[in-house]
């Protein structure tokens, strides 16, 4: 199942996504949660501490590019997850589509 959760800002989609991800994982499913928001908050609703979230490397500009269609990856998710994801509670893997700050990246 590949599930997209959409809705107007503030509608509560991140709270629902985070809780849903963990509940599905508890039912024995392997869950990858992807935060597609430039200001990532999914980590918090998954129960990942802000400090751990900060320690996660942002996607560098060669890994993710911003297009008219949104963010686009230049690698497969599997490759990215090897280096740019962290384990959230209940075994959920979190990948934040947070691009690195452009400053100094050329």
């Amino acid at each position: 199942m590949k599930l997209a959760v959409v809705g107007k800002g503030g509608v509560g989609k991140t709270s629902i996504s985070g809780t849903l991800a963990r509940l599905l994982a508890r039912r024995g499913h392997r869950v990858l949660a992807v935060d597609g928001d430039p200001n990532p908050t999914l980590a918090l609703s998954l129960g990942v501490s802000p400090a751990r979230m900060e320690s996660m490397p942002a996607l560098s500009s060669e890994l993710v590019e911003r297009t008219d269609e949104g963010y686009r990856l230049t690698r497969t998710l599997e490759e990215l997850c090897a280096s740019h994801s962290l384990q959230a509670p209940d075994g959920v893997t979190l990948l934040a589509m947070r691009p690195a700050q452009q400053a100094g990246t050329g």
Binding site: L3, G7, G18, L24, L32, D37, E69
Partner: peptide, 16 residues
């Protein structure tokens, strides 16, 4: 299983 928490704005939605 993959859960995407998608950006809020409608502009990014249709082709995202």
């Amino acid at each position: 299983m993959c859960i995407l928490d998608v950006e809020a704005s409608l502009e990014h939605f249709s082709q995202s």
